[in-house]
Design a binder for these strands. Structure first.
Lengths: 220, 220
DNA sequence: TGTACATCAGTGAACGCGCGTTCACTGATGTAC
DNA sequence: TGTACATCAGTGAACGCGCGTTCACTGATGTAC
């Protein structure tokens, strides 16, 4: 027991190590959703356990039955958000050669942006917590992103083999850079769109940087 | 008076609107540095005014003489960090054509990383606060980055004019994407370097993506 | 060079609030027979 | 189908701490003459 509420394949346990049933899971989930909502509205610094409990119409004691503290709730939300990642990975597995490569790139960019639009506040705090050094959050970020990074990395190495990408490039670093760009742009795109860059132009532009860097080819 | 301690060309005022002299400026600066230090050590969520005061060996009342709250201190730190930006902008104004273009790109990447290494915690919280919608932080970010973005954007438009970059790309979006990539990688590079990507490989890789995207040319 | 006055700088001490946290308890649900 | 028992679920109420914040005050510094 590491103090967190543990979710295995079938069973979830509360802070006392007791099994959580159907009803409990529902309450737990409502607490998580309220946490996400308040994170969006008030920001991380002003998020209070008491507020979360109030929002769900329950008592603080209930919150503590399922989570050690607010950070843990955010950690669980990060894990839930990460469940969407396989869909994005599937897109990356699409074709990268020829015309359809650019299409693949567009689909990936679009998917990452939608992922962020859905989980905005949670993902931001997740990344901050990881950057601040919290190993649990580092792990979630790593688990979420490494399939993406690894796929892109492999594709880049292929392009290097074909002589289209310089051997001076580190495939791993390039892949990480691209994912970094996608994430930051996904969290930032609304602000850019307020300043006159249309959404589709933005997607197209990111897609082309992605395509170019991954394949070493200029987009058609 | 908007409630913040205002710094004009020569004069700083405290929370009561009184002029701050030499001695006061020193105390104020020590409070700022302690804030930055604690931000690094404890993270944003656990940063307390009382801790900052204690760290400087002064009383909380002194802190409130200069800042409305912790956020404002972080805002001032962000402004101070931004004073380094002109140095980076100078680098961007270097040559982008031919061999030396890649050198320019490397210098820019390196400078951004060093900037982040110095102000790590402050810049992270600055960006989070901006993303969370705080208009004062949005403004600081904008003021800090737009010279960079604008320069890159102009250079990309030049490459478009010469037919080396597709007209389907938005120069503004591409420039913003590159800066987004640089920032995120700058805040992330230490973690990557722990996983076997050397620092120089990382710089080289980012520089090549930057060079390629800005000029439309494959790096030499 | 000295004195008086204005302003700058700093703080002790206190207040009150509200948050985190816990415990002992009640009520709800499930299941064994 | 009914009863007893085990376990799941939820909470009221309270505690105490520590943080944010303020005020009235003292001490330091500067400057006018």
């Amino acid at each position: 027991m590491d103090g967190g509420s543990q979710t295995t394949a079938r069973q979830t346990f509360d802070q006392n190590g007791r099994a959580v049933g159907r009803r409990g899971l529902q309450t737990r989930q409502r607490l998580l959703e309220a946490t996400a909502e308040l994170l969006r509205e008030q920001g991380m610094r002003d998020l209070r356990v008491v507020d979360v409990a109030r929002a769900v119409g329950t008592s603080p004691a209930t919150f503590y039955q399922y989570f050690k503290d607010v950070r843990e709730a955010i950690l669980r939300l990060s894990e839930q958000a990460a469940e969407e990642m396989p869909d994005i990975v599937n897109l990356i597995d699409g074709p990268w050669r020829g015309q359809s490569g650019l299409k693949t790139a567009r689909a990936v960019v679009d998917a990452v942006i939608r992922h962020w639009d859905t989980h905005e506040a949670v993902l931001r705090v997740r990344n901050l917590s990881a950057d601040e050094g919290d190993p649990r959050f580092r792990r979630v970020v790593r688990d979420a992103l490494s399939p993406l990074v690894d796929r892109l990395s492999a594709e880049i190495r292929r392009a290097q083999g074909a002589g289209r990408v310089s051997p001076d490039v580190s495939a791993a670093a390039a892949a990480a850079s691209l994912v970094a760009m996608l994430e930051r742009m996904a969290s930032y795109h609304a602000q850019l769109e307020n300043r006159g860059v249309t959404h589709s132009k933005l997607v197209e532009t990111c897609a082309r940087i992605l395509f170019q860097t991954v394949t070493g080819r200029s987009a058609p």
